[in-house]
Amino acid sequence: MPEQNKPTVSVAAGKGGTGKTLFATSLAVALNEVNPGQVQLIDCDVEEPNADILLHPQITQQTPVNVLVPEVDLDICTRCGQCAKHCQFSAIAVIRDAVLTFPDLCAACGVCAYVCPTGAITEVNRQVGSVAHGSTVQGIKFVQGRLSVGDQRATPVTKATGSQTDDSMITILDAPPGTACPMQETIEFSDYCILVTEPTPFGLANLEDSVATCQRMGIPCGVVINRDQAGWPGVEDYCAGEGIDILLRIPQDRQIAEAYARGETLADAFPQWRDELVRVYNDVVEALLQTATTKVKE
């Protein structure tokens, strides 16, 4: 792998509260210990960003995220209704003499302006979120997207946040929970997806969805089992059957939970975990190299 192009790793999970952010921030802290100033953590969970609680970054810059919405010049508009007829989201309506836009329903596709025969519609910016930039005291570059309160379309903000991925750095993307558009938008920026799960039937059900999503998108994935404890072998049996690597097991441990509740990562609270976390990243790099080699041979 050339020095200029370091693999980007996303951290995802089928449900919230599994340990994505704890693992992603811990990984960033551990990697920054051995690669100071070369690690970037991007919090793409724009509906509920919280990686800052564990990394305590200083935010130095905020950039707005805008989408285009229609603005109608009522003096030019003939009320022909073509815009409303073509809008797939009912984000514009012509009710007798009134022309109404519904920005929160708009997908910013621009078809209304395209079909308008008189050019009465222009597309204007509307802010739907923001991206914060900063860094931690230890020098981790920190990026965090945030959807504006009251807005419902996370994907444009997720995309603007994930696009801050810097290939010259070791980038960790903290993905939103689930397997819907915002998660897919996030992992699309990554070379490899680490799926955090719990050793329970519920965890497995969500893991299966996440694995299927990665496979459909052609993104290699491995598994971290959080709150690991003896008892139910379902997740391990599934991974063995599918040939998916289990990269790490984080035990069910009250001390870890207490450190997390204090706002400390695994790597900060328990330095003995750092080597293991770095090893996980190295395993991912190794797996990617092998895949690349296999592809070249084919």
Binding site: S90, V94, F102, L105
Partner: peptide
């Protein structure tokens, strides 16, 4: 957008 579609 169901309400808007119906209103149209």
């Amino acid at each position: 957008g169901a309400g808007v579609a119906a209103a149209q």
